Amino acid sequence: MTSIDPGRALALSYAPPATRAGLEALFALDDRLATIVRSTREPMVGQMRLTWWHEALTRLQTAPVPQEPVLQSIKSLVLTAGVSGSSLAAMTDGWEILLQAEIDTATLEAFAIDRGGRLFEVAARMLGIDDRRIGLAGEGWALVDLARGLTDTILAGHARTLATTRFDAAFRGRWPRAARSLGALALLARFENVAALSQSPGPTRRIARLMLHRLAGY
């Protein structure tokens, strides 16, 4: 049974009710791709599995959907929101980067864009929002998630520094109301990033910051 991330559940509860199930399906797809990479010991095997997902997602609009729960949900909840199968298939690119290369600065940058940026931009499209800051927030979110699993502390620190730059840019100005669920996800990652780099704000300040974002968009 897949555990539910309480932080993500809280953040997605900020989304308009009609979009929540679709966003949950989208992030479940990202979870599945993450599991492939994190559980793969042989890069070639991982690439083959990601290729299967890439092809299955690309064909969603033109062929019967495989009996796979994540794909079934994507077909019924995400494609109906105006997202193409090919744009979802591109989400495999960020994860494949981790199988193809040693992780260095260039890898971090590419992963941030191809995983987090793409994911949040697709989510924004589902919400009817076009705002470059949302992609930047997604890049920061992905970098924090990657840093969490890196054993190289120097590289992890660099990932967190890159995330800080993106969060600083993403949270300039007010966010659109419909996108504040994504902003809350990024804020939770930002809290973790601050805790790793310096000193974390206490629980009360975190809750207050999330509420401010939900209500006012800052």
Rank of each mutant, 00 (worst) to 15 (best):
G7K: 03
L10H: 14
L10M: 14
A11V: 04
L12R: 02
P17N: 05
A18H: 12
A18F: 08
T19G: 00
T19Q: 15
A21R: 15
L23Q: 04
F27V: 02
D31N: 12
R32K: 13
L33K: 02
I36R: 07
V37Y: 08
R38N: 10
T40N: 09
E42P: 00
E42F: 06
P43W: 11
P43A: 06
M44F: 11
M44R: 10
W52C: 07
W53I: 00
H54W: 10
E55W: 05
A56F: 11
L60E: 05
P64A: 07
E68T: 06
P69C: 03
Q72Y: 04
Q72E: 15
G85P: 04
G85Q: 10
S86M: 12
S86G: 00
A90D: 14
L99R: 08
Q100D: 14
Q100R: 15
A101L: 11
A101Q: 15
T107V: 14
A110R: 15
A110K: 14
A110G: 03
F111N: 01
D114H: 14
G117F: 08
F120T: 01
A123I: 05
A123Y: 08
G128I: 06
D131Y: 10
R133G: 03
A137E: 04
L146W: 12
R148V: 10
D152H: 08
R160K: 12
L162H: 06
F167R: 02
D168I: 10
A169D: 12
R174A: 11
A178M: 08
A178V: 04
R180P: 02
S181H: 03
L182C: 04
A186E: 01
L187I: 03
L187Q: 07
L188T: 02
L188Q: 13
L188R: 04
R190Q: 15
F191E: 01
V194L: 12
V194P: 01
A195N: 05
S200P: 05
R206D: 00
R209K: 11
R209F: 01
L212N: 11
L212K: 10
